[in-house]
Design a protein around this nucleic acid. Structure first.
Lengths: 184, 184
DNA sequence: ACTTTACATACTAAGCAGAAACTGTCTAGT
DNA sequence: ACTAGACAGTTTCTGCTTAGTATGTAAAGT
């Protein structure tokens, strides 16, 4: 967006990513700016130089990471060469599967627990994801809306049922075979 | 089991049902034996006459209610006249849908929060439900296991997504249409 | 087959003061 | 374009005391 710095890779982005990681690990409230600064290898006043407050930092970190994920998902789904089921599996894995399991840090969790801190980008991200998936599914299925809503429910359910990411992927692939009747 | 009383309807059963209702409303820990006794319209020492301890009462209440539910579900699914989708909708509604929403008391919740208090009947109830559903689905579907596991994931997901029971039912019916390709 | 009353023991919730930690800011330095 | 250090004001945590409540048992009654 605007000019921000002199580093080869924008420093703000690196800080945003490590910040959300830290927030996700311990929760928003229990994560101190000191901890975020240490994880980003800068000083705490330096962190306040980059972001006006803890709330702003969290808001921007959430928007940044969700934006990245949605962009990656859009690219995955746009690759018309791959089979639809494969694209959907990778899209849902990126959206939800990678956050499944006790080892994974729960990014969606920390976002859900602090809805008041999020901006429109973050709030609308789930709807944006649903639209991306619907667009990808539409050409292949008779009732895309119902199919996508069902897949979203499966994903939410698996997030609670699956013990880890690989189980999420296995079970979601199975669901895709059930929901997409021999597409292709 | 042993001889228990003189009432036309076994008093223990009435107590068990009102007890689980009370436990579900406030949680196990925060429900006093006094509250259970009052809800059952007996005295607290009278409650101890019927059940040796609070833990035993909870265990038996859970087993009793789950047994009732599974019996009702078995009957619903066994009615071969009704279309499969209708039977499945009613079965899942009874198993999960009726507990969706802020007004509903969360029986599954209080069971999940106190796993150490449950006996085998209660612990095995989810597996028993899955078997009942699988048996009902098997004659109509090529991959019954996958279809049932998917429906279970949808149900878990909807429990978190749906605002109330009627939304659960609508969305689950939609999922049934997606999963069961024009059965019948 | 229960009820009422009562009791010992254990747990838990409430309040509260002191300690600690956190946020946001500032200054001085490089 | 930052770092180091420090500071005021506020929020959170900790340990403690005390009061309230819960469990399980028992006695006596109907």
């Amino acid at each position: 967006m605007t000019y921000r710095g002199c580093m080869p890779v924008d420093r703000r982005e690196a800080v945003l990513e490590s910040a959300l990681e830290t927030f996700a690990r311990h929760g928003y409230r229990r994560t101190s700016m000191e901890a975020v600064a240490t994880a980003a290898r800068i000083s705490r006043p330096g962190l306040y130089f980059l972001f006006d407050s803890k709330a702003v930092l969290f808001r921007e970190a959430a928007a940044h990471v969700l934006g990245r994920d949605l962009a990656a998902i859009e690219e995955i789904l746009g690759d018309a060469h791959a089979p639809l089921a494969d694209r959907l599996l990778e899209a849902f894995d990126r959206w939800a599967g990678r956050y499944v399991g006790p080892l994974a840090q729960d990014v969606p969790g920390v976002l859900a627990e602090n809805p008041g801190l999020l901006d429109d980008t973050a709030t609308n991200a789930p709807a944006a994801f649903e639209r991306l998936v619907t667009d990808a599914v539409s050409p292949h299925v008779v009732t895309p809306g119902a199919a996508v809503r069902t897949l979203l429910s499966v994903s939410v359910g698996l997030k609670h049922q699956a013990a880890d990411r690989s189980e999420y992927r296995e079970r979601f692939r199975e669901a895709l075979e059930v929901v997409l009747p021999s597409t292709e």
